[in-house]
Nucleic acid binder design. Structure first.
Lengths: 235, 235
DNA sequence: GCAGTTATGTTCGCCGGCGTACGGACGTCG
DNA sequence: CGACGTCCGTACGCCGGCGAACATAACTGC
């Protein structure tokens, strides 16, 4: 396994050298185990996290326990945007969907850097806008598209953030993310498997035919991806 | 009718005097007629708008024409946040839902003010966070709540931004906003009318029993409102 | 290798929202 | 005052996702 470096996070990598040198001493590498809650709804945030090789889901949880994922964050972004947006808390929950590591920064350091009005500010704002796009697209998708399409979209978004063609995730967890029943995922995943698009076995999903998966997905995937590429720059 | 002043917009009103004096000469009062498209999906934004007595809906429109409202903006906020977020465009459409007037600022002036790093920047960022909350809550609401509850939420959010107890809006338009069939609205509104909560007639809705309306709404309304109050300050 | 837990497959009735279609009521403008 | 357009009410079949319940199969720990 390659060593973890801050450059594995795209926001950090694109900072000018001066800012990187100023920031790096304050970055702390932390491990992000599967299922860990990075922040809870309404709790005061203490750090911002820059994922390197993990994925974090932003979830809204209703009082009755029902939930829905509103965005997913990988090495293209950061977890805890409300720290610099000024709110300090958000009504959402952030939970590690795929384990790995992340660099974190204390809220105070972040604010300090933010107030210098350098590239970090603009990078974070652009990222936040791509996050907004993702949330909005999720809202429309929840309204109009079939579960199977949403599953395809979700798989693609997760794969993009992981690299490779495999991810570990039970149907139960996917159902929580998408805000649907587990049985619905079983059926949809069964259909995809029958089509030869994926292979599924006890929490291991392998994508066999990515082009086909993209065909079966709704356009929401491309909308999110192209806007993200536009705002954050490719590569 | 009272004269329109910039202070009718809550973001402008809360700016320190120095910033207000600097900005006011550049504000231009424009009329916002019902149905006007403030910006189109993907189009380059030229101005940011600060509503005084109108309501603007942010819509996502799919290729097949289906749509869904992802947020609604009144005098508590601004239309065109992507201007300072760095993206310049967004994949959404902004359309006037209730006519009135707004102050607008050119993108260049806005950027100029934004870069001064004064209160305007923080006010806009806090507002953007409340917008994010609204979008996320809409996504969950679309997933889990019944149409009737969503209608109540929508009525309440619109009323809050208008003041008073009446709004003009056909069922057809409401259906577009919520991303459902017109018939669904007819039925839900019919039930509310039978309960004596609203009175409905040819594009005129009058709320007769607001407390009841709040009861029938999902908690999403309160979630959005309380977060908005927290971030923007009440009054 | 057995027991208990976890993950997946399957069924059945139910209901809310969709697509479609039609009819009636109100308003307005010539 | 009559014709047309807008707005609203209603009906019917359809289907996807829900809720609940149960069956199997694969891992895990002992």
């Amino acid at each position: 396994m390659a060593a973890i470096t801050p450059e594995m996070n795209q926001i950090l990598r694109r900072l000018p050298q001066a800012e990187r040198e100023r920031l790096y001493p304050h970055l702390r590498l932390v491990s992000m185990p599967l299922g860990a809650v990075i922040y809870e709804s309404g709790a005061r945030l203490r750090h911002i996290y820059f994922p390197t090789d993990c994925i974090v889901s932003l979830l809204y949880v209703l009082k009755n326990g029902a939930s829905a994922e509103i965005a997913v964050v990988g090495n293209e972004g950061a977890v805890g945007v409300s720290l610099f947006m000024g709110g300090e808390t958000t009504p959402s929950r952030a939970i590690v969907q795929s384990s790995g590591q992340a660099y974190r920064l204390t809220g105070a350091r972040l604010t300090q850097e933010f107030e210098r009005h350098g590239e970090m500010l603009h990078a974070l704002l652009r990222y936040t806008q791509s996050l907004i796009t993702q949330m909005a697209q999720t809202a429309v998708c929840n309204r109009h598209h079939a579960l199977e399409q949403q599953l395809c979209r979700w798989l693609l978004l997760s794969l993009d953030r992981l690299g490779g063609d495999e991810l570990r995730m039970t149907q139960e967890l996917i159902a929580n993310m998408l805000g649907v029943r587990r049985e619905g995922i079983t059926e949809a995943a069964g259909r995809l498997q029958k089509l030869g698009v994926i292979r599924y076995a006890r929490g291991r999903i392998k994508v066999l035919d990515r082009p086909r998966l993209e065909q079966l997905s709704c356009a929401c995937y491309f909308a999110v991806k192209s806007e993200s590429d536009r705002l954050l720059g490719t590569g």
